[in-house]
Design a binder for these strands. Sequence first.
DNA 1: ACAAAAGTGTTCGATATACACCCATGT
DNA 2: ACATGGGTGTATATCGAACACTTTTGT
Lengths: 220, 220
Amino acid sequence: MAICLTADIVVFTFTDAVLKVLLVRRKKPPHQGRMALPGGFVSEKEPLEKAALRELKEETGLRLGAAEQLGSFGDPRRDPRGRIVSVAHLALVAAAPAPRAGSNASQAAWLPVKRLPPLAFDHKHIISSALERLRDKLDYSTAGFQLLSQKFSLPELETLYETVLDRKLDKRNFRKKMALLGILKPLNEWRRTGRKPARLYRFMPKKFEKLKEEGILFPF
Amino acid sequence: MAICLTADIVVFTFTDAVLKVLLVRRKKPPHQGRMALPGGFVSEKEPLEKAALRELKEETGLRLGAAEQLGSFGDPRRDPRGRIVSVAHLALVAAAPAPRAGSNASQAAWLPVKRLPPLAFDHKHIISSALERLRDKLDYSTAGFQLLSQKFSLPELETLYETVLDRKLDKRNFRKKMALLGILKPLNEWRRTGRKPARLYRFMPKKFEKLKEEGILFPF
DNA sequence: ACAAAAGTGTTCGATATACACCCATGT
DNA sequence: ACATGGGTGTATATCGAACACTTTTGT
């Protein structure tokens, strides 16, 4: 069985009103010099998720505690070296710490999902799957809040939703629903970018847990 | 890299008002004599889905055209032989042809999902994932109809939904919604099991496609 | 003063849910 | 005749969608 297993990871964040994915520049062939998802070979006794997180840390310096499995990509010709099946993972991060390059990567960077350069292997395809999954998660999870820093304004949150769902939302309806859910704590701080300052909020995970137990979902 | 890849498949059907999964009895260790999902090692140049379908045919005689990937199960200790990662698949079938035993399997049978015997490996866990996926699919796909034979009665369809969703539905509301969708063609045939005969219907895939294009979902 | 983005309520239509009785058949 | 499961309609509550103007700031 000359089949090898890699674990790759798609890490999204949302900064400057743009959804970004964490990529590294490949040091070695194949696809040397191209941008690619962080990832690498799974070691023999290592759980798949751990392998993805380990590679992420090695290649970008970003240390995360968990990732969710996206699925496996096993087209026999996806890697020119031979049969290499990739188990793709997904993670969302709030603040986007400046990535540092690591082993096997000569560069690590957050790139806007909308304007990606040509990527190695089928990584563009994997990112598409990840985006689709993110869209789904927006409806029933805290995905949206995980992508923003702890303090955020409602226009920021709305832009995030509009970006990921790829459609314009109604400002008033959006705010009404958020208010109704009661999972946002208004702060006495304002963000003074643009013209009129926007009030900042904090997400309240505990309230959200309560809602989930009651089976209430996000209405988008 | 001494990691091996298997492709396993969960095939569901719904007969006699019961949801069933297709299992085979293992001829060889490990877990010799236990029931397990159809599946086996992926060959070097074989797509994952094809591997699952090939193993299904070899072990049960059931020949299917497609399966959807469920995810990969890679706990390092899931297989006593060593590191073997399984890519699990899901398929739904209408009629349930009598399975025949094949290579590596001394028996193949449809077993009720609610009352499974002890299974090999983590296959019970895989079946749980498959069930969850099926529940999700019921809402936005033709999954329900794929599990029944071409002609079916509304009570049968309702029982199927109740079984998979694991809750009682209101007869009148259920029928109203189905009628509203307009994807069922009433036939001039009646099923005379039980007491009063139940009218039979046929699912109209074309109407369903039209609904999907309009973005209309199933309301359960 | 003006441009640009933040903030705010109401109305309406659609849809999910709750609910009770009659009907056709087999025994 | 009766037991069993098939079949039918209405009323109410909830939720999502549509929609326009005022406010605050920077230039």
